[in-house]
Write a protein that binds this DNA or RNA. Structure first.
Lengths: 368, 368
DNA sequence: GCCCTCACGTGTTACGTATAACGTCCAGGG
DNA sequence: CCCTGGACGTTATACGTAACACGTGAGGGC
C-alpha cells in the first residue's frame, strides 16, 4: 500500500508547460487556503473556519481567535467561494433576468433589488436576455454558477423558456409584471400598470379627446396586454370615443413610423396618441412634428415609465411613473422569503403615479 | 432513524415549526449527481465524467458512452457547477464592471463581450458600480463567486479600488478607455476618443464657429480629460477662437443648467456647444430653446457616443459614433488571451466616426 | 509461449470548506 | 477520589467533480 502521495499534479500548481489549456501558464501566486492560515496560526483548519465564520463564541478563546484573524490578514486569505458553495450547497447568489440592458426601468429595479440583497449578504447577478429576436441563449450558460434563485421580468419570457430543463430547472423564481393566471413562479411582484393606463386614458378623455390611437408595443408580453385592456375598459364608458391600435417595436424610429401611419391614415386625424412607453412616445412626437404639426397643440402624446428620456425630449412627456426600485426591493424580499422556506405574502400591485407634463392639452377645435 | 442520503435542506432552523398547514416543506428533489448517473448506467463515476466531459474518445466504447448519455438524460442530470469550479480551480466566468446600468454604450459593450465569450464557453457577469457617489461597495461581495478575470471601464474607477485587497486581488484585468500611462491592467482597449473630439472641433471650426463652450462631464475620468485635451489642441491652431469650459454631471437636467449658465454669461454669446456626451447635449438643446433660441440656427450643439437618444431629440444630434460592440469583443478577446497565459498584442485605439446630423450649422451672422 | 500493445474501463485522490462528533484539561462539588 | 461539566480545540468526514494511475482481457508479433 503505497500511501505516499504520488505525483498527482494538482490543477493549480503550474508545472507542465506543454498544455495549452486555459490558464496553463498563468503562474498565479497560489492563493492561501484556510489550512495555510491554520498552519501559521498554529491551530487546526477547523478552528480557522470557526473563527472566520464567526461561529467561535464559547468554543475558541479570544486570544486564539485574534491569532487566527491576524494570520488570515497577513496572508491575505480569502475563502474559496467555489469550495464554500459546494460545502454549503448554496451560493447566496441570485440572478436577475432583464429584457435589455439599456432599459432604464430595469436599471432601477436592479438598484432596489441589490440594496435589499446586500442587507442579507446575498449577491445579485444580472442576465440581460439577448436583444431582440436573437436565439434564446441559456442564461445559465452565461451565468455558469450555482444559483439560489431567479428574479425575472416577464418581458424576458423567451429567456425564461430556457430555464425549463436547463441548470435552473426547479429554481425558486420570482416573476415581475407577469400574468397572475399563469403558473410557475413562487412569487410575483406586479405594478398597477392597469391603473396607470386607466389614469392616462381618463386624463385624455377629460381634456376632451375623442379620437385616440394606442401606439402599442409589438413585443408580446402580459404587461402590454394589460395596457390595451385598461384603455378599452375606460373608453367603453365614454360616448363617441374611438381608439385604434397600431403597434411597433420599442424603438424611437419604429414609434415614429407607426405614429406617422396612424396620423396619416384615412378618416379624421386622431388628436391623441397613447403610447406604451416613453421611447415610443418620443418617436410619436417626431412623427407629429414631421407632419408639420405641434405637440400638444395639434396632437397630444402620452408616454409610460417616466424614464429620463421623458424629460429630455421637447415637449416633456406626460407619462406614468413606475416605482421601479420598489419592484426590485419587493422582488428580492419575496425571493429571500422563499429561500428561507417560507411563503411570501401575495401583496397588492404597487401604485403608479400619473405625471402631468407638457405633451398633453385639449384637442384643437373641430373644423368641419 | 432513517438517514436519508442527500441532506436536502439547510439544517438551519428546521426545528422551529412542524407546520403542515401551507406545505412549508418544499423538499427539493435532490438533484442527481454524476454518481447517480453512473449507477443507473452501470458504470463508474469516472466514466460518466469522461463521457459527459467529452474526453472519452478512444477510452470508452461508443456503446457505453451512449448508455451514459441516455442515463444522464433520463435522470435530468446537470453537473454541479460549484463542485466543478472547485475541482478545476477556475470558473470560466468573467465579470464586466460598468459605471451604470442605464448607459447604452455599456449595454453594447456587453453584447460584444458576451458574443465572443460565448464562442469560448465563457460566461459574462455584470457588475454595475453603485450609482453616483454612493459608497464603493465590493463588486465581489455582489458577485460572490470565483471569477477568472475582470473587464472594467475606467469610469467605474471607484468600484475598481475595491478590487485591491478584495477577493479579486491579482485577478487578470482588462481596462476599457483607461490612461495608457497608469499601471495595473494586463491589457487595455481604447477607443480613439481623442480623434473623435478633434473631428467634432474641426467640424465646428470649418462651419465658422469662433466662440465655443465645452460642456464637460463632471465625472472625473481619463476619457473626459482626453476630450478636453483634444479640443484644446485643435483650437490652438485656429486664430481668434476661444473655448470656455463648464462641467456638469452626466444628466439631462444638469446639462441644461450648465448650458444655460454658459449661454447667459458675460460677453458675447457662444455659438457652439461641444458636449462630452449625448445626454449633456440633449440638456444643452433644452437650454437653448429655453432662452428662446433655436438649434442649430442660433447655437450649434454636438454630442458624443451616438446613443439612441441622439436621434430621439429634436433636432437630431451631430455626434461621434463609438464602436461599442467592438470594444467589448476586443476586451473579451484580450482577456481570454491573458487567461490562456499569453500576452495580448497592444492594438491601436478603435476608430470612431463623426456623425453629421441636424444640430450643427454655420453660426449666425455677427450683429455688432 | 511470452511479452507487448491496445481498447476499455475502474479505483482513488484532491480541490477547500463547514461542521458533527469527539477528546482533553482543569475546577469544583459530592 | 470520582464524577460533572464547561472551556477549548481537534479529527474526521462529506459536498460533487475531474483526472491520474492503474488494472483487465484480447489480440498480435516474434
Amino acid at each position: 500500500m503505497c500511501a505516499v502521495r504520488g505525483s498527482t499534479m494538482t490543477p493549480r500548481r503550474t508545472s507542465s508547460t506543454d498544455t495549452t489549456e486555459y490558464g496553463a501558464m498563468t503562474e498565479r501566486p497560489a492563493r492561501p487556503t484556510s489550512r495555510d492560515v491554520a498552519r501559521t496560526a498554529g491551530v487546526s483548519q477547523a478552528t480557522v473556519s470557526l473563527v472566520l465564520g464567526d461561529k467561535w463564541r464559547g468554543r475558541v478563546s479570544e486570544r486564539t481567535a485574534a491569532l487566527v484573524r491576524e494570520a488570515a490578514r497577513t496572508l491575505g486569505y480569502r475563502p474559496n467561494l467555489a469550495a464554500r458553495n459546494l460545502r454549503l450547497g448554496r451560493t447566496r447568489t441570485v440572478l436577475l433576468v432583464v429584457p435589455a440592458l439599456t432599459n432604464e426601468f430595469f436599471a432601477r429595479v436592479y438598484t432596489g433589488a441589490a440594496g435589499v440583497a446586500a442587507e442579507h449578504g446575498v449577491g445579485v447577478l444580472l442576465y440581460p436576455s439577448p436583444a431582440g429576436t436573437g436565439p434564446a441563449s441559456d442564461p445559465f450558460a452565461s451565468a455558469r454558477h450555482a444559483l439560489d434563485g431567479v428574479i425575472a421580468s416577464s418581458m424576458a419570457a423567451e429567456a425564461l423558456d430556457a430555464f425549463r430543463g436547463a441548470d435552473g430547472a426547479d429554481l425558486p423564481l420570482v416573476m415581475l409584471d407577469s400574468d397572475p393566471a399563469a403558473p410557475g413562479p413562487a412569487a410575483r411582484v406586479n405594478v398597477d400598470i392597469e391603473d396607470g393606463m386607466r389614469q392616462v386614458t381618463r386624463h385624455l378623455l377629460d381634456l376632451g379627446h375623442r379620437r385616440m390611437v394606442h401606439l402599442a408595443s409589438a413585443v408580446p408580453s402580459w404587461t402590454f396586454d394589460v395596457r390595451a385592456r385598461a384603455i378599452a375598459e375606460v373608453v367603453r364608458t365614454a360616448p363617441d370615443t374611438t381608439v385604434t391600435t397600431v403597434s411597433a417595436p420599442l424603438e424611437v424610429e419604429a414609434g415614429r413610423a407607426a405614429a406617422e401611419r396612424a396620423l396619416t391614415g384615412p378618416g379624421p386625424r386622431p388628436t391623441a396618441l397613447i403610447c406604451d412607453g416613453d421611447v415610443l412616445a418620443a418617436g410619436a412626437c417626431k412623427a407629429v412634428r414631421g407632419l408639420g404639426l405641434r405637440v400638444p397643440r395639434d396632437v397630444s402624446v402620452t408616454g409610460f415609465d417616466d424614464l429620463a428620456l421623458a424629460r429630455a425630449v421637447e415637449p416633456e412627456l406626460t407619462t406614468v411613473g413606475l416605482p421601479a426600485e420598489r419592484v426590485g426591493e419587493r422582488g428580492m424580499t419575496a425571493l429571500l422569503t422563499v429561500l428561507d422556506g417560507r411563503i411570501p405574502p401575495p401583496g397588492a400591485p404597487l401604485p403608479v403615479t400619473l405625471v402631468l407634463r407638457a405633451s398633453t392639452a385639449p384637442p384643437p377645435p373641430e373644423d368641419d
